[in-house]
Nucleic acid binder design. Structure first.
Lengths: 144, 144
DNA sequence: TGAAGATAAATGCAATTGCATGAACATGTC
DNA sequence: GACATGTTCATGCAATTGCATTTATCTTCA
């Protein structure tokens, strides 16, 4: 059997799960109250908007977002349904496709950022100095 | 509009969400592979096992676990179904009830901890000193 | 007392997720 | 070329979640 985690490790783990879930729920709530779709839509739109030509293979999107394959497929369904993205046939691989962000998608992403950034500032920025944030970031990075 | 979050804050937020989701998925996976139910079952069993007489009102459980009311109700359904907990009528409030952990519930909680603690050690303990963990814990605590 | 409002818990229904599989195409090997 | 294997993406189905509402009981206050 592996060694048991120390008190410190266990406490850090418990806090990590608890705090993240609380903050995420709060941020999602802020988005919803502002009439926006879930954060996962934002994440996808951001990834697409940053990609070359505003398009990505679903497989890429999946890797960026750390989502299961079927989850990506359905997220793209919804984005497409809402007119925020489009599926395009992939010229170099008959199995695959490209997902391209639309102008409406770009617009929504920018509008959501206003609310999203406000939520981050309120729930995180207001409670941590930049120095603390950098430190937190570093510690989390070691866990990745 | 609120101030925009700094680079540091934004990066910390992104890392927090990303790292926690990754680690949590990994730990859940470890539990599942060992043939155990989800972490939420463990959390509930732990709360119950620590409570006076091994029982809690659903409302209490809900507050401890930060879950919505209906979610708690259904979690208790499943625990009861599996013989890990029992619903008892509440003598002091006719609306309410008590949820009591069974011996099987206590046994499962202990068995799950073997696997769970191993996963924590592997995914967190192996990557952070106790000092780092304490610091992480502190930083997260300020966000709560 | 009794009516109004608050609280505890369950549940119907729609949306979402997870899992397993399927269909279409690609790649490597002989 | 043809078969075996791997990759990409979609989807049927069951389980879970979220939301709104219902039922039952409690509390308050006139």
């Amino acid at each position: 059997m592996t060694r048991k985690p120390s008190q410190e490790i266990t406490a850090a783990w418990a806090n990590l799960v608890r705090v993240q879930q609380g903050l995420l729920a709060a941020v999602e709530q802020d988005l919803k109250q502002a009439g926006f779709p879930p954060l996962s839509w934002y994440d996808a739109l951001l990834e697409l908007s940053r990609a070359e030509h505003g398009m990505l293979r679903p497989v890429e999107l999946e890797k960026h977002m750390l989502l299961p394959q079927y989850s990506t497929s359905r997220l793209v369904d919804r984005l497409t349904e809402a007119g925020l993205a489009e599926r395009m046939t992939c010229p170099i691989d008959g199995r695959g496709q490209y997902v391209a962000i639309t102008q409406a998608g770009r617009n929504l992403q920018k509008k959501m950022w206003d609310t999203y950034s406000g939520a981050i500032e309120r729930h995180v920025g207001a409670k941590l100095s930049n120095k603390d944030a950098a430190q937190l970031c570093d510690l989390l990075g070691r866990l990745a």
